[in-house]
Design a binder for these strands. Structure first.
Length: 445
RNA sequence: GACCCUAUCGUCCAGCGGUUAGGACACCGCCCUUUCACGGCGGUGACACGGGUUCGAAUCCCGUUAGGGUCGCCA
C-alpha cells in the first residue's frame, strides 16, 4: 500500500530524546507506515546556541534504537528531494517566503524585528484528534501579532515550521498538544501564503505519575535511560504506543506489524496520560520472556561486554543465557546472573552465606553431596536431581537443606536459575570443586 | 488573568443512552514451586461535583471545580 501521506518529526537538538518526543515521532511513524506514506525527519536547529553535533546524534540514536526509520532526512544515503533537512541550511528558502509575505503587506517592522499582521478573524481548526475548535483572534491584547524574524536576522519557530511544512509537502502535522493553541496562528500564515494548511492532529501530552510535566531529570524521561537500563527497544516502543492509543480490545502486548495495521488518528485519546514506569517494566519482562534466545543474546551482549565477562565465544554464552533468560526483567541484570559461570572468582552474597552456608552441618552435607556428584555416571538434570534427593534421604534431611547450600556454594547467590540446570551447565568439575571449597572454608572458621 | 484542551479504579486502556461499569500494571491473599521468577485463582479499588435532556445517563447539553496547555525577538 502506498499513498501521498507525508508526515514528519521535527525535533530541535536538546541533547537527549525525550519520551514525549519519541512518542510523537512514533505516532508519526505509525501513521506513515499505516497509510503507506512517508516519514520525514527534519532537524529544527534555528537556535544556534543549543545546536551541537552530539545533541543531534542523540535524536538519531533514540529513533534508531526504537526502530523508527525515516524515509527522508539526515543520515540517509539519499536524503530526499525536499532537503536540506536542517533548518540551519535553509536560509534561502525562508528569505524567499519572507519576501513574499512582505510584498503582500503581511509584515511590519517592530524594533528591528519583523512581525506578521494577524487578519484578526476567527480561525476554525478541524483537528483529527481534538475535533472542531474555533479560536477568536480578534483581540490583539490576548493574541498579539507573532514575530517571525529577529533583529539579528534569525528566524522564529512558527514561521520556519510552517514554511518547511509547505516546502516539504506535509499532508498531516501530528504533534504534541502543547502546539494546539499555536495552530490558529500557523493557519493564518498558511492562508497569507495562499497555501491550503495540512491536516492537524494534536496528541495528548505525557505527564509524570503525579500529573506534573515531565522534565529531563524525571525517571524515564530520556530514551537514553532505557537503553542504559536494559530495556528491549520493542518493549519500550510497545509501551509508548499504549500511551494515548489502544487497539480497543484490551490487548496490550502487540506485535508492531499489528499495531501499524490497527493504528489510526481518530482512535487517539484526547486525554493526557501519566507515565507509568511499572507498566513499562512489566511489558519489558513480557518481551524478554517471549523473545528468541538469539534476540536475547543479541540484546544482552553489550551489557555482558561492558561488565568485562570473559565468556570466550558466543556459543559458550548460549546455554547460560538459555537458563537465566526467563528470570531477567532488565538486560542490565544479565552480568550479575551469569558471572559465576565464567569465573571462579565467585562473589558471595553476605546475607546468602549467613542464612544458608553458616547453618550447622552445612559443610558436612556439602561434602557428602559433592562425593556423590563426583561419582555420578551421567551429568544430567535428571541424575543431579535424583542424586540430591537420594542423598537427602540418606542423610535424613529435607531436600532444601541440600539445595540451598549447594546453590550458594557454587553461585554465591541465593537466587538464580533452576539448581539442576545451573549445575548441568556449570559442569561436574567446577560444581564439585566449589562445593568442597565452600565446605572447607566453613570448617576452617 | 485571557484563550484552548481534558475529566472512568493509584496508573494506563475499554465503554460511545439500558453492563452486576470490563481488562492490564501496581497492591493484598491463596495455589504452583523446597531459590527467585513465570503461571493460575481470588480480592481491594473508579464514572470529580451540581443542574438539565430522556422512560432511562459514565455515555448528550450547561455550569462549577480540578488538572494540563498556550499567550516569547525559545522550539
Amino acid at each position: 500500500m502506498s499513498s501521498n501521506v507525508r508526515v514528519r518529526f521535527a525535533p530541535s537538538p536538546t541533547g537527549y530524546l525525550h519520551v514525549g518526543g519519541a512518542r510523537t515521532a512514533l505516532f508519526n511513524w505509525l501513521y506513515a507506515r499505516h497509510t503507506g506514506g512517508k516519514f520525514i525527519l527534519r532537524i529544527e536547529d534555528t537556535d544556534k546556541a543549543r545546536n551541537t553535533v552530539e545533541a543531534t546524534q542523540a535524536i538519531y540514536d533514540g529513533l534508531r534504537w526504537l526502530g523508527l526509520d525515516w524515509d527522508e532526512g539526515p543520515q540517509l544515503e539519499n536524503e530526499g528531494e525536499y532537503g536540506p533537512y536542517f533548518q540551519s541550511e535553509r536560509e534561502a528558502v525562508y528569505l524567499r517566503y519572507f519576501e513574499q509575505l512582505k510584498a503582500a503587506g503581511h509584515l511590519y517592522e517592530d524594533g528591528g524585528a519583523w512581525r506578521f499582521r494577524s487578519p484578526r478573524k476567527t480561525v476554525v481548526l478541524e483537528d483529527l484528534v481534538c475535533g472542531k475548535i474555533s479560536f477568536d483572534l480578534s483581540n490583539p491584547m490576548t493574541h498579539p501579532d507573532i514575530t517571525i524574524r529577529r533583529p539579528d536576522g534569525g528566524w522564529i519557530f512558527h514561521f520556519v515550521n510552517v514554511v518547511d511544512d509547505i516546502e516539504m509537502k506535509m499532508t498531516h502535522v501530528i504533534r504534541g498538544e502543547d502546539h494546539l493553541s499555536n495552530t490558529p496562528k500557523h493557519i493564518e500564515l498558511y492562508q497569507a501564503l495562499g497555501v491550503e494548511p495540512p491536516r492537524f492532529a494534536h496528541i495528548p501530552l505525557i505527564l509524570n505519575r503525579d500529573g506534573s510535566k515531565m522534565s529531563k531529570r524525571d525517571q524515564g524521561a530520556s530514551i537514553a535511560g532505557y537503553i542504559e537500563q536494559g530495556y528491549a527497544p520493542e518493549a519500550v516502543r510497545n509501551y509508548l504506543c499504549l500511551l494515548g492509543w489502544s487497539p480497543k480490545d484490551n490487548r496490550e502486548v502487540l506485535d508492531i506489524d499489528e499495531i501499524i495495521s490497527l493504528f489510526d488518528l481518530p482512535k487517539i485519546n484526547r486525554r493526557s496520560a501519566s507515565f507509568d514506569l511499572d507498566k513499562c517494566y512489566w511489558i519489558n519482562g513480557q518481551y524478554l520472556l517471549q523473545m528468541s534466545l538469539d534476540r536475547f543474546a543479541e540484546l544482552s551482549l553489550p551489557f555482558i561486554d561492558k561488565a568485562g565477562i570473559a565468556y570466550g565465544s558466543p556459543d559458550a554464552l548460549k546455554p547460560v543465557l538459555a537458563i537465566v533468560k526467563e528470570k531477567i526483567k532488565h538486560l542490565n541484570e544479565v552480568p550479575a546472573w551469569i558471572g559465576y559461570f565464567f569465573s571462579d572468582a565467585v562473589e558471595f552474597d553476605a546475607e546468602a552465606v549467613e542464612k544458608t552456608l553458616r547453618k550447622p552441618g552445612a559443610a558436612g552435607r556439602l561434602n557428602a553431596l559433592a562425593a556423590r556428584y563426583e561419582a555420578l555416571d551421567a551429568w544430567t538434570v535428571e541424575a543431579l536431581e535424583a542424586t540430591l534427593k537420594a542423598t537427602a534421604v540418606e542423610l535424613g534431611v529435607k531436600t532444601g537443606e541440600l539445595i540451598h547450600p549447594t546453590r550458594v556454594s557454587v553461585s554465591g547467590r541465593s537466587v538464580g536459575p533452576s539448581l539442576y540446570h545451573m549445575l548441568e551447565v556449570l559442569g561436574r568439575e567446577r560444581t564439585v570443586r566449589r562445593m568442597r571449597k565452600a565446605a572447607a572454608e566453613l570448617a576452617a572458621e
